[in-house]
Design a protein around this nucleic acid. Structure first.
Ligand SMILES: [Zn+2]
Ligand SMILES: [Zn+2]
Ligand SMILES: [Zn+2]
Ligand SMILES: [Zn+2]
Lengths: 164, 164
DNA sequence: ATCGTGTTTGTTATAATATAATGTCTTTGG
DNA sequence: CCAAAGACATTATATTATAACAAACACGAT
């Protein structure tokens, strides 16, 4: 069984985040080229906004930023771009927050599990195949064939734990 | 470690569902009495509607039913009742569907995992402490202290598997 | 180059989900 | 009964998401 991986770790306040963004955009560019998907300017910009901080981003906040860019933008603008990014495996949706985070392992298919800090909203993405498989197995015992999993854990990250 | 339990199994089309409802209402009545919570007529009715089928129920569908009852009802009516039932541990919210299901193990505190059929919407609730603990443990390794878990699996139930 | 086709984006409107704020009525304990 | 807290009604509004259709654009085939 593949080993557990941390796809997106918790990030400290001070790290070279421009690098996080550049890397994510470069990986997205490459992933889209490989799959013959169009990584348009709009989609690139939305992905950049999703990655603008290591916290889940709301659709309407992204929309506000697009408008601030001077671009003509309405809800469909952002929801369509997000749909594309979701389908392309470049972002994940956090169901319990109606928000979106950048995927830490685009290209490599995986089922992510998300850790979300109640206090500072920081998000980490991990891929623990043992859990995925245990759930699939438990489901199977009830005759249920699982195809997607939503796993979102809330709590306190290490920094917020200390200060709490 | 406690054994895995099925809190709400998948239900066949033909079972004595009135009995499911009566049982859920009786358990709720008892749980509320124990905790000195007021199980009012409105809350009872909303719980009854949540249990009306073994599928996640939407707030506005419940609202429609309340109106059909002849009762004065607006969104806050149903959301307040649902908040009460959530807090009292009598229903769970399915985050990925913005919908609500009756809890299969009220009183006994637990962290449920939900299996949801894409086809017929049937929901089962299980309690697999091994998974809960594995997730908590994985989180801990990242310095994260987990307090709540949202686990929602989508797929096909056994009946829909056959007919698919 | 130009056409035809499918994709992407713009635009307007509306649907679906959820909460804020305020006042009234009801329950409950003293 | 009375006071206080809790529950409910009512109105308004905030938040999240999609429908429907038109215009602009990308791209391969001629
Ligand atoms: Zn960063
Ligand atoms: Zn934190
Ligand atoms: Zn039943
Ligand atoms: Zn089914």
């Amino acid at each position: 069984m593949p080993k557990k991986r941390v796809l997106v770790p918790f990030k400290t306040g001070s790290h070279d985040h421009d690098r996080c963004i550049d890397l994510a955009l470069a990986e997205a560019e490459s992933a889209c080229r490989k799959q013959h998907l169009r990584f348009t300017e709009l989609r690139r910009r939305v992905l950049e906004l999703v990655w603008s901080r290591h916290i889940p981003m709301k659709a309407y906040d992204i929309l506000d930023e697009l408008c601030r860019d001077g671009r003509a933008a309405a809800p469909p603008t952002v929801y369509r771009a997000l749909d594309f990014l979701l389908t392309a495996g470049l972002v994940h949706r956090i169901e319990s927050l109606n928000a979106y985070v950048g995927c830490g392992g685009p290209g490599k298919p995986h089922i992510g599990q998300f850790l979300i800090c109640r206090q500072c909203n920081a998000v980490a993405e991990i891929d623990a195949p043992a859990i995925t498989q245990a759930l699939t197995q438990d489901a199977k015992r009830l005759g249920f064939r699982a195809d997607t999993q939503t796993i979102e854990i809330k709590g306190l990250c290490s920094e917020c734990n200390v200060s709490a």
